[in-house]
């Protein structure tokens, strides 16, 4: 108990940082669920691919920590762009390969889940075997810095040095902490506005409410579904870079647990609810941190799942309710 009180600020800040990442990944689950009522199981792999794209950009540019600020910002922006592009691309690929046919056939949801599970396995394994795949094309030596030790942790060399900005309650909040929390909130606001104000956003809401009626009103359902996957993927790419800036390591199978947590966050906030995703992420991150401070860090995941079970028992549709379609314009 005293540990919790002594480190309250630190636990809160790191909880919010973790929660921001959960929230951004949760968006992908929530958007796809809102539109299609499907659990996009492979979304964690979308995030994983984005994280590797970010790592590869920094490897390719090879910027040492402590470079001039404009260079650092440039590299980070490039990494962000790469992560968003790759994640968005993988999300679109996923829609094409794992979902489109099943959506057209109006297959049972469970089958789409199995299809997504298969895609998730395949994507993770391809990343874990990337050295072999490069070998097929005789590129193994050329690409060595990108594909070596494919089954182990891949480190991210953060070009931005972590610096303390201000100290509260014995914890020095770093620039990275601030960047992560602020950019997550900014992105969430931007997405919320996108859904509320743009033509595509209106289309997403319309399909989420009633896809047949939307189609009758001239909404191109397939285009909206693609847009939904793309937006979710882009958010996951951003989350990947933010995650790497704080935690510094990714690997081929890192997506799985993060994906489960992010999905939990989405359900906590009310799946299908865009604002709920970030709220659920923050609550989950904080609860994990406080809980592990109280009863030991090895119980971290147990706390997360217990929280989920308890919330669902008392509020079966999540904290903010499921309402992508009902978000007011």
């Amino acid at each position: 108990m005293s540990f919790l009180i002594d480190n309250f600020v630190e636990l809160t800040v790191t909880g919010l940082v973790l929660g921001a990442v959960y929230g951004l990944v949760a968006l992908g689950y929530t958007l796809v669920y809102g539109v299609l009522q499907l659990i996009n199981f492979a979304h964690s792999e979308v995030w994983m691919f984005g994280s590797f794209a970010a790592v590869w950009v920094t490897v390719a540019l090879g910027v040492a920590p402590g470079s001039a600020l404009p260079v650092v910002i440039g590299v980070l922006l490039l990494a962000l762009l790469a992560a968003m592009t790759v994640s968005g691309g993988v999300a679109l690929l996923l829609e094409r390969v794992a979902y489109r046919r099943l959506i057209r056939l109006d297959a049972p949801k469970l089958v789409a889940l199995i299809s997504a599970i298969g895609a998730s396995f395949a994507l993770a394994e391809i990343m874990g075997l990337r050295d072999r795949v490069a070998g097929w094309f005789g590129l193994r030596d050329t690409l060595d810095p990108y594909v070596r030790s494919a089954r182990d942790n891949t480190r991210f060399q953060n070009p931005l040095e972590t610096e303390g900005v201000f100290t509260v309650g014995g914890y020095t909040v770093s620039n990275v902490d601030i960047i992560i929390i602020v950019s997550a909130i900014l992105m969430m606001v931007a997405l919320d506005q996108f859904i509320r104000r743009t033509r595509t956003g209106r289309g997403i809401r319309a399909v989420a409410q009633d896809s047949e009626a939307a189609a009758l009103m001239g909404v191109n359902r397939n285009r909206i579904i693609r847009a939904t996957f793309l937006v979710g993927g882009i958010m996951a790419g951003a989350a990947a870079l933010l995650y790497l800036m704080r935690f510094g390591v990714t690997r081929w199978n890192a997506g799985f647990l993060l994906g489960v947590k992010a999905f939990t966050a989405a359900v906590l906030g009310g799946i299908g609810n865009v604002r709920g995703a970030l709220l659920g992420g923050f609550i989950l991150g904080l609860a994990e941190n406080y809980g592990s401070a109280l009863i030991g860090s090895e119980w971290r995941d147990v706390v997360a799942f217990l929280l989920l079970v308890v919330i669902l028992l008392f509020r079966p549709t999540g904290l903010l309710g499921e309402s992508l379609g009902r978000a007011r314009a």
Partner: peptide
């Protein structure tokens, strides 16, 4: 596991029931 994943994907898409 890669082949298994692809097999699941194909089975789900082409034998959905």
């Amino acid at each position: 596991l890669l082949v298994f994943g692809l097999a699941l994907l194909l089975l789900a898409n082409f034998r959905p029931q």
